[in-house]
């Protein structure tokens, strides 16, 4: 009996001692949520920083160049002292050409890989192929740029002799290769999440595997697939090093794919590398171009999110 009493007494004492010690720890306990909130706020501040930076510097740019000229002028020729022309259209055209080529390459191949992996491939081959696709997605873009300039362009020039060294075709194709794994992987995820019962139902009604894939799985996963394509295109629009290395630096409004172009991203790189002084119109122009680029990709990303939310079929 006596021992029990001392035991309970000592536990009580231990608790009290512990509580005394805790008053020091109590501060950490109270402060930590706020510190962690601050770290979370950094990501929000980054977005705010990006938007404010682009807006302020773009305003400074529009002090020198009229908004009307920026959106309607048909020439982008900033490196002239007397008659520089700042019309964004040729740069947008360059980005557009490259992006469309990339999409033409990436969408069919990406979808075919996704269908193969989710509908036809055995578990074993999927376990081998998927990581390899991820490797392809992890290769730095400068490597793809090198590949475009030193391998794809020479091969294309054998086929199309009129192709210039810098052109839209080669970087477009290589960007397509770069975004293929992304489209394949995301689409495959969407298709794998279609319940097997639907496949089995269609097979039981006498469909072939191809019909199951095209008429049942593809429509059921369409929101995820379209979202993956939109995200891929957004990546293609923002891609920089491949076009900077292999695309050239002559912005133009032509539809020609074999001649040298310049994309929005490549222009920013060109100016950053040169010695356009701080505060010049050329310096501010990269922010105006960056703003345009940012708006393009933001719209694409929001579109992808909207499609996933709006058209998702829940099973």
């Amino acid at each position: 009996m006596a021992t029990q009493n001392t035991n309970s007494f000592s536990v009580q004492k231990m608790i009290q001692e512990k509580k005394k010690k805790k008053s020091a720890g109590g501060i950490t306990e109270k402060i930590m949520p706020y510190i962690l909130f601050l770290t979370a706020a950094v990501s929000v501040l980054t977005t705010i920083g990006i938007v404010l930076t682009l807006i302020f510097e773009t305003f400074l740019f529009f002090d020198a160049v009229s908004i009307k000229e920026f959106f309607t002028a048909k020439k982008w020729y900033p490196f002239s002292d007397t008659n520089g022309s700042y019309g964004i259209l040729p740069l947008v055209m360059g980005t557009l050409k490259v992006t469309v080529i990339a999409a033409i390459v990436a969408v069919p191949i990406g979808l075919a890989s996704a269908i193969y992996l989710s509908e036809y491939a055995s578990d074993r081959s999927r376990r081998i192929i998927k990581p390899i696709l991820e490797v392809l997605a992890g290769i730095p873009t400068i490597v793809y740029g090198f590949f475009a300039l030193t391998f794809v362009t020479p091969i294309l020039r054998e086929i199309i002799p009129s192709l210039e060294i810098f052109n839209a075709l080669s970087p477009g194709i290589v960007i397509g290769i770069m975004i293929t794994p992304m489209i394949a992987s995301l689409s495959e995820d969407a298709m794998t999440s279609v319940p097997n019962a639907m496949r089995e139902g269609a097979l039981a009604l006498g469909s072939t595997k191809f019909e199951v894939a095209i008429k049942v799985v593809l429509p059921a996963a369409i929101s995820g697939i379209i979202a993956s394509i939109v995200l891929g295109i957004s990546r293609a629009i923002g891609e920089t090093m491949i076009v900077a290395v292999a695309g050239g630096s002559t912005p133009n409004l032509e539809w020609n794919l074999t001649s040298s172009i310049q994309t929005m991203t490549a222009y920013i790189v060109q100016v950053s590398q040169g010695d356009a002084g701080y505060g010049t119109t050329i310096y501010y122009s990269i922010y105006a171009v960056g703003m345009t680029l940012f708006v393009f990709t933001l719209v694409m990303n929001l579109l992808a999110q909207y499609i996933t939310r709006r058209f998702r079929e829940e099973y």
Binding site: G238, L293, F294
Partner: peptide, 9 residues
Amino acid sequence: GVPSIVFGL
């Protein structure tokens, strides 16, 4: 989803 070059700016 923001292009890396915009982070550069």
